[in-house]
């Protein structure tokens, strides 16, 4: 195994660094405390949603309801949590629990996660519309304060990204339960034979994913100050792309929390970079895809070369 294959985190870091250098070169104004924060603050909720997606991918499933669920969490935050904090918190906790139950059901009935989560995305979307039929609501003051805080030296967006990466790294890579969870993705039967309850583990993975999605919704409302039922629909694809960009794989429990956070930052930065290029909007989606393919090709080339040999 060569260096890059052994340290799959290197490629995402290099991609982000190259893109960041190019952005700073094009837009020197971005190279400041204020600039970096503006570039990355909207990446914080995306990073949280990407971690959530990573937890689902870790157990060999995929979540197509991320966007709708984060939108719902944002709507709850902007309405219930703001008007009646206790009740709002209960509802958010209920949403996390619903995710855990979903994980258990998917395992117990051997349902394909892709179908269940796609179906649930309409349920979440509908609930969000019931709660907030027209855009509105307001961010609870403390979330707004938290998302616009100006820590010394390093901007909030960077502090948050490091914090998210560190916490999830400890949880998923270092802790015993994290190893078990990754084991479900790697070899569920082995986990079951060694006495672990795969159902409980899957429920845990989904529950944690629900928690991070709820955090993503809250962070988003803190930034936008209000919500609407469609506010985060893009997050489904962004989160999947972020996981893969960050060195994760769809099967086998091979994921990297730090990589996922870096992937989310890279995707956000790529959009800004293309906007600074003044590329026509018709080309922007294509160009975003091209950046994604470029990184994945690079990864494949490096890992293939090291191959089984």
């Amino acid at each position: 195994m060569n260096f890059l294959a052994r340290h799959r985190i290197v490629l995402p870091i290099v991609s982000l660094a190259v893109l960041l250098a190019a952005t700073f070169w094009m837009q020197p104004r971005a190279m400041s405390y204020f600039g970096v924060n503006l570039l990355f603050n909207l990446a914080v909720p995306i990073a949280l949603a990407t971690i959530a997606q990573m937890l689902i991918i870790m157990v060999n499933d995929i979540d197509l309801s991320t966007g709708a669920f984060v939108s719902l969490a944002a709507c709850v935050t902007a309405t219930l949590l703001n008007d009646a904090p206790l009740f709002g918190a209960l509802v958010l906790a209920g949403l996390v629990l619903a995710y855990a139950v979903l994980g258990a059901v998917i395992h117990a009935l051997a349902l394909p996660a892709i179908v269940v989560t796609l179906g649930m995305s309409f349920v979440w979307g509908g609930l969000a519309l019931v709660l907030l039929p027209s855009p509105g609501g307001a961010s609870p003051g403390w979330i707004r304060t938290l998302m616009t805080v100006k820590p010394p030296l390093v901007p909030m967006a960077v502090v948050a990204a490091i914090l998210i990466a560190a916490v999830t790294h400890l949880l998923v890579i270092r802790s015993g339960i994290g190893t078990m969870l990754r084991g479900v993705g790697g070899n569920a039967r082995a986990v079951a034979r060694s006495g672990g309850s795969v159902m409980r583990l899957k429920a845990l993975a989904y529950g944690l994913a629900g928690l991070f999605n709820v955090l993503a919704g809250m962070a988003l409302v803190g930034l936008t100050t209000s919500a609407d039922a469609n506010i985060a629909l893009r997050y489904t694809l962004l989160s999947i792309a972020g996981v893969i960009l960050g060195g994760g794989e769809f099967t086998g429990g091979k994921v990297s929390p730090t990589g996922a956070v870096i992937g989310a930052l890279t995707l956000t930065l790529a959009a800004s970079f293309l906007s600074f290029l003044r590329l026509s909007p018709d080309w922007q989606i294509g160009a975003q895809g091209a950046i994604l393919i470029l990184v994945l090709t690079a990864r494949l080339l490096f890992t293939r070369r090291s191959g089984p040999a």
Binding site: A30, P135, A227, R234
Partner: peptide, 30 residues
């Protein structure tokens, strides 16, 4: 999408525009 337009506006701040004229995707999310 409102989130994308919010990012677009933040990029405009970095690009140093003096004024931003906006037709908004959402009355509140920006």
């Amino acid at each position: 999408q409102a989130t994308e337009q919010a990012a677009q506006i933040q990029n405009m701040i970095l690009q140093g525009y003096d004024a931003i004229v906006v037709n908004a995707a959402s009355p509140t999310a920006l």
